[in-house]
Deep mutational scan, measured.
Amino acid sequence: SSGAIIYTVELKRYGGPLGITISGTEEPFDPIIISSLTKGGLAERTGAIHIGDRILAINSSSLKGKPLSEAIHLLQMAGETVTLKIKKQTD
């Protein structure tokens, strides 16, 4: 049976990049997913974020019904501590 787990990851960026690339579309209900991780970057080092994971919220702002451009804007405005709500498929 296919299921999913949902969890929250807190990234402290200390002025540096998060080390993630996200992808999606401008269709508001398409998923926003992690499309790549910078090798040795902040997100990869947590061990908790993987390519293909879906981002449900950024700093408690839900991405439900929001296009990719809004998600990118939220990441850019997120500040030093970025909290990502992640949904991972478990097959």
Rank of each mutant, 00 (worst) to 15 (best):
S1F: 09
S1T: 07
S2H: 06
S2K: 14
S2L: 12
G3P: 14
A4T: 14
A4Q: 10
A4L: 14
I5D: 10
I5V: 10
I5W: 07
I6N: 09
I6V: 06
I6G: 04
Y7R: 11
Y7C: 09
T8S: 07
T8P: 04
E10F: 04
E10K: 12
K12W: 04
R13W: 02
R13T: 09
R13N: 11
Y14W: 14
G15Y: 05
G15D: 10
G15R: 10
G15F: 07
G16D: 10
G16Y: 07
G16E: 14
P17T: 15
P17R: 08
P17F: 05
L18D: 00
G19W: 00
G19N: 04
G19L: 00
I20R: 02
I20K: 00
I20A: 03
T21G: 15
T21D: 05
I22C: 10
I22N: 01
I22T: 03
S23D: 15
S23A: 06
G24T: 12
T25Q: 07
T25C: 12
E26S: 12
E26R: 08
E26D: 10
E27G: 11
E27T: 14
P28F: 05
P28T: 07
P28G: 07
P28E: 11
F29R: 12
F29N: 14
D30I: 03
D30F: 08
P31F: 03
I32L: 06
I32T: 03
I33Q: 06
I34W: 00
I34A: 03
S35Q: 13
S35C: 12
S35F: 04
S36K: 13
L37M: 15
L37N: 02
T38Y: 00
T38L: 06
T38A: 14
K39E: 02
K39G: 10
K39P: 13
G40L: 03
G40V: 06
G40T: 02
G40N: 14
G41P: 03
L42E: 09
L42F: 08
A43S: 05
A43W: 02
E44S: 09
E44N: 03
E44W: 06
E44Q: 07
R45Q: 13
R45N: 11
R45C: 08
R45A: 12
T46K: 05
T46Y: 04
G47P: 03
H50R: 15
G52Q: 04
D53A: 01
D53T: 01
D53Y: 00
D53W: 04
R54F: 07
R54M: 13
I55W: 00
I55N: 00
L56H: 01
L56C: 08
A57G: 08
A57Q: 15
N59L: 01
S60T: 13
S61I: 11
S62Y: 05
K64W: 10
G65Q: 06
K66G: 02
K66H: 04
P67C: 10
P67Q: 09
L68H: 03
L68Y: 08
S69M: 05
S69G: 05
Q76K: 12
Q76E: 12
Q76H: 13
Q76W: 06
A78H: 03
G79V: 06
T81I: 12
L84S: 02
I86T: 09
T90I: 13
D91V: 15
